[in-house]
Write a protein that binds this DNA or RNA. Sequence first.
DNA 1: TACGTTGCCTAAAACGATTTAGCGGATAGG
DNA 2: CCTATCCGCTAAATCGTTTTAGGCAACGTA
Lengths: 359, 359
Amino acid sequence: MSTTAPRPVTLKTVAQHVGLSPATVSLVLNESPVADSIPLETKERVIAAARELDYRPNYLARSLRSQRSFSVGVLVPEISEGYAAGVMGGIEEHLLQEGYFYLVGSHRFKSDLLDEYLQLLRDRLVEGYVLVNTPIERSPGLPAVAVSGRRSIEGVTNVVIDHDCAARLALQHLAELGHERIAFFKGHPGSLDTEDRWQAIERAAEALSITIRPELTLQLSSKLDELAFTPEDGYQEGYVYGQRLLATGEELTTLFAFNDVSAIGAMRAFLDAGLRIPEDVSVVGFDDIQSAAFQNPSLTTVRQPLREMGTIAARLLLDRLSGGTCPETVMVAPELVVRGSTGPSPAGQRARPKRRVAR
Amino acid sequence: MSTTAPRPVTLKTVAQHVGLSPATVSLVLNESPVADSIPLETKERVIAAARELDYRPNYLARSLRSQRSFSVGVLVPEISEGYAAGVMGGIEEHLLQEGYFYLVGSHRFKSDLLDEYLQLLRDRLVEGYVLVNTPIERSPGLPAVAVSGRRSIEGVTNVVIDHDCAARLALQHLAELGHERIAFFKGHPGSLDTEDRWQAIERAAEALSITIRPELTLQLSSKLDELAFTPEDGYQEGYVYGQRLLATGEELTTLFAFNDVSAIGAMRAFLDAGLRIPEDVSVVGFDDIQSAAFQNPSLTTVRQPLREMGTIAARLLLDRLSGGTCPETVMVAPELVVRGSTGPSPAGQRARPKRRVAR
DNA sequence: TACGTTGCCTAAAACGATTTAGCGGATAGG
DNA sequence: CCTATCCGCTAAATCGTTTTAGGCAACGTA
């Protein structure tokens, strides 16, 4: 019933109320084994009093004494970005279930900012870190789980998408549609997923006897820490690289982009150039961001189960904190979402800029 | 240099190191007025020692003693959603600058969950709340700032977009393009912005002599707490309501949607029905979410400066915490972003489903 | 010599919990 | 009858700070 009133209900208050010592009350409320010898009747009295007074243990005091903060630090490049937000949703879901909270820092790929946050979070006594698409150099000194991490760092568990599976799904889909001249966007040099994904693509291409043509392979080149990190930049980049692809004059029947934003940007470039999707060019993205489904045409893409990855990361971290052991890597399965942007290869027909058709 | 080692550098450590008492060290490091009489030379010795030992005050101990947590609670409907994520970006920016961290809870519009989070955050001794699109019934008992709040609640400052300005911008734009038969999507019944926005639209329409036709006005009706709150649901809803609009058989030349996701869904419905945008129907959204710019056609919309709203909210809260006074409402200005989805009204021509044109 | 002052610093009490060591009394075992 | 054990509980230390109320010298003044 107290709304704005001070809240002086401490252990001592409860103790006085039942005529026992604070120690006893603490033992009872925490169901300590030491309290085994306390008769049920007393325990119930204590519990009843606590409930009645609406006693809530002081988090700071408890944590100070027990040296546990029930908090973890989450590091992301930038909160207001789809990938990070998706993963955070999952992290939250699990953490809160277990009585933990998390503190977030966004480092924008600046390593000094990152170091500062690691320190600040540590000062806050977080018990561990979840690193979302966050490039760290060395062990952060606390248990950590990385989502979409790249290197294997001592003591850091990685939750990654199964890139081999992803590449296979996408390329197989394209192969079945008869595509042979496939263009690729490689990821940004600094992004953790870039290398793994690319190698997986090479392997899958090999297995499916698909030729990767260097002249159709473009690496998204913006320096990560120079981007403002709004997705607009990503779209813009995709648009520019889409144009660049067309400008090479090389024949292509499909594009497998590094992610959805660049795929969508490229689609736009293709459409502007008068190409039809998927009749002239098919496009496959990666991630399945929220607007992928409502592009026109809707985007075929490889979905990353972001939320699930977050949940898994949180679970792994908590397991580890409670003494459990952690695998070095946990893979999650991607899923191919086939929508309107992919279709049969225009057999033998060259995909080149034509006159603008509409708009 | 210590990586995983325990960190036993406490005040006492530093004190011993300089041969003084912990009290003195504390006074010096905190630049307490009591330390005025301490000679500079001593102070410097203390500071040097602290730096040398890399002393970092224990957050829990400090907070326990001073009864300040340097944390605020942020409540959002769901993190992985564009609106909330955008605002959070701004909140973070300001808070971290001031040495604060924040704890997040997402309530999915379930009021019991919301109450629980308010309590949990309070247990964590947050000093105040930022409520993002979060419907509260009564004062939460701590200083609070609401972003996109509706009711005026004692002690809660509201950061809202200037709906009158927004409505005027959008309707004026449409009026200048010659539109008269304007369809509207009203927001969900439970959403805080719905009512304000609608009233603003009514006022602006009146001022511009625009007729609001009930037969062209649809209220998005999903119960908020029944949605899974993925934007997909929003798109889907927009799609369905777009179809429904066409099914009425009423003539319309433009749609002013409640938000971008529903606008995009409706665009899709219109395109599927063979209408051209903007030649046959214009569409205006609200929010300027990230994918608005890369729709085809790109979406004209009223942008909410989400990040800025977050920053302002954080600033207001901290001001209030440090004893400052707070206005009851702070308005931020929206901005009309004109893109490809709006064009001149098809004079006198009826916008009705025709045969499908492309695709 | 006695009595303020001032300058420099510290003892000790919070803050609110957890946890260990152990105290008195009753009961049981030898 | 003496000791060992158990029962039911508590005193007190501890976590690492902040902060108040002084203490002790030295110095100046009367």
